[in-house]
Every structure is written in C-alpha cells, then in structure tokens.
Nucleic acid binder design. Structure first.
Lengths: 200, 200
DNA sequence: ATGCTTTTTTAACAAATGGTAAAGGAATTC
DNA sequence: GAATTCCTTTACCATTTGTTAAAAAAGCAT
C-alpha cells in the first residue's frame, strides 16, 4: 500500500463519520493534499505568520498556544485524527496570535486555504462536511467552557484523565496545566493528592 | 411595513454579513419561519425536552443554562441578532441538559430542525451560511476559553463591561457571575473594587 | 556513561475566590 | 402603596490556587 494512500485511509474514515463522500468528490481533493513529517518542537504555524492552511493530524500531538505578558497560554491540545488550524488568522488573513507547535514527532496532511475554499465552493458535500466538523468542534468547546465554569481544577483534571488518558503519556505537565487553566505547581499538587486517595 | 417583513429585515442584515442570499433562496425560507413573543422567564426550551428548533433572537435577552448538583450554571447569554439552539440536543435528538430561558421580554424567529436541515440539503448557499455562522460562534467560544485560562475573574468582568456593557442593564448579576465562572458575592466584591478605583 | 538542560515536585507564603448567612435594596404582585 | 418576594451586598472564615524559589527527577546530547 503506497504511503499516501494509507494516510488518506485515516482521513477517509474520519470523514465518513459525518458524510458520504463519493469517488468524484474524493478525486477532487487528491491533487491538493500534501503529507508532511515534522519533529518535536517544529512549528506548523509560526508566530506572526498568516495561516493559510488546514491540517489533519495523522499521528503525534500538537498544541495551539499564544504568548501573553505572563507567559505561554496553551489553549488547545490536538491528538491524531483531528482537523486543526488557527481559525482567526485563517478567516481574517491577518498575522496569527496563535502558534501551532508539534509536541511530539508529527505527521500531518495539509491542504491550502485556497484549495479548501475551492472545494467548499465547488462541492456542496464538502461544504457540508466543513459545517459538520466545525459544529462538533463547537460542541466540544462549549463543553469545555461549561467545565471551566462549574468544575474545580481537580475535577477538570480528573475528567481529562478519564477521557484523554493518552495525553499524559505524550504531553508535558506544563502544557496540560495551562490547558486546564492552572499553574504547574497546582497541577502537581492535585496529582499528588489523587495519588494518595487511590493508594489508601 | 408588515411586522413579519420588518422582522425578516433584521435577520436579512445579519445573514448578508456572511453570504449573499438571492431572491429564490429567501423565498424558500419564508413559509417556515414563525415569529413568537415571549415574556420574561418563559422557556424557549424546557428541561428534558428535545430541541428541534433553531432560534433567531429579534429582541430581548435569553440565557442557556443547566442544572448541576450545586445549582444553575449559566453557560451562555444571548443578545439580539444572534442565532441560538441547544446544539447537543438538536444534533443528537436526545433530551436536552440545557435549558433556554428568556431573561427579558423576547421576540424570536423560529424554524424547525426539519425545515432548516431541508434548506441545508436543498441549497448549497444556506449550508454555507450555516457553516460560516457556526464558525464565528466557535471563534467566540475559543476566545472565551482563552480568557478563562489566562485572565483573572476581575479581568474577565472588565472585558465583559467593555465589550457588552448592555448586558448590565438587562441581566441579573447572578447570571452574569455564573457566566463569568464566579459566585455572586465574588462578582459583587469585584464590582465594588472597580467602583473605588474609578472614583479615586 | 556523564554532564547539561529541561521538567516536575516541593515548600512556604500571599492572594483570590468560595460558601454561608444575614442585612439591605429593588422589583413585583396584589 | 404595602407586602412579599427576589436580588444584591456585606462580612466572616475556609479553601483553593498563585507565586516564587529551590530541590529532585527526568530527558537529551555528546
């Protein structure tokens, strides 16, 4: 099996969860999809650059963060089989406040905004896929917001453990802490506390 | 000017910010749009019901909240000219955890899921509108999440004051506190503190 | 392996926020 | 417009989380 074909298999499965894409619609994308390998700490999007790409994470983990006066804020952590981009920059075509960085070795599919928007324009079905995917992303974010409002930091961590245990094996604690909205010492404390509970 | 026409004018202007909808596309919606007047404390969606509607808020304010063991959690506050629904229930067609309630007297446009999905199916352009609107909602939510991560409660309140001062005149402090992720006494303290700073 | 760098944990203290209950103020209803 | 209900403020203390700095641990490179 050729490597590109195998990679397309992954995205194919993800996409079919939302809509049925036919032969012709698939063939329309093929010429525009590029695979890229990156190393830990490489950037998918560097600070100040305009994001004109949509990514699909085949393997590895990335994070989206921005610089604030007090340090870095990790707003999102991405795992395999997810779409990602720095949407505000992608939409506005202005320099991005957000930075996309590989946390591990990474393989991504890349399609340019130009071609993606072309697909959306040309095929109703791709447009629909776009809607359904962002709709799901929206719901995830709403849920996370809800958790920020009414869960304690400890409960948010518990939930992360429960739903995304794999992150613990790949993502430094500092990023996870920021993602949860707390400082690294706080997360370390919480972690220790949970250990004691589980041990006794 | 007939009342329905005037109401459609409002949504027309909102929609045209995203896409150009032609005569035919508009006419396809008209038969399915209903206007409704509601009183303060009325429900657009009651607890446990399945949400099969999309709303467009013409006037007044609503909130989306859910019941938690510790009390109500106001996850969102909506102002005029916004679309709203309880998306998880709308998508899954399961009973909603989320409740949509009028905070003031309200006028809404209502379209059923059945008809809306029909429009999406029939008209590429309506589908696109759906994508663009939810995309914007997604960006708003991401920004709010970002604020939860790296701003203090006081800064979140300041920002709300700066960007949505109108809420202060229409929304009880308790709802705003919950929306900001803090307790009413905390918000009251913060408010007092800001008053002192501005006075001296 | 050894030394260097980065990450994580720990500790001590400071600050922010939560919970509760009571008092004060506003709004609503009859 | 008086009474009632609901909303907001205040005060108290408990708890959580932040900040800083140093120590321990882990990861990386030569």
């Amino acid at each position: 099996m050729a490597p590109l074909y195998k990679n397309l298999q992954t995205i194919f499965e993800t996409v079919q969860r939302f809509v049925e894409i036919n032969q012709k619609e698939w063939e329309a994308v093929l010429p525009y999809v590029e695979v890229q390998q990156l190393q830990k700490h490489d950037f998918l999007l560097k600070p100040g650059h305009i994001c004109r790409k949509m990514f699909f994470l085949l393997s590895g983990y990335t994070r989206i963060y921005s610089q604030s006066p007090t340090g870095e804020v990790t707003r999102d952590i991405n795992k395999p089989s997810t779409f990602l981009t720095a949407l505000p920059s992608y939409i506005s075509e202005k320099p991005s406040q957000e930075i996309i960085q590989c946390v591990t070795k990474v393989e991504v599919l890349i399609i340019s905004k130009e071609h993606l928007e072309g697909l959306f324009y040309q095929f109703h079905n791709w447009e629909r896929l776009g809607r359904l995917i962002i709709q799901e992303m929206y719901m995830d974010t709403q849920q996370r917001l809800y958790d920020f409002i009414h869960l304690t930091a400890e409960d948010r961590y518990r939930k992360l453990l429960k739903d995304h245990k794999d992150l613990m094996d790949h993502i430094p604690l500092g990023y996870i802490a920021s993602f949860l909205g707390i400082s690294p010492p706080s997360l370390s404390r919480i972690r220790k506390q949970l250990l004691n509970i589980n041990t006794n």
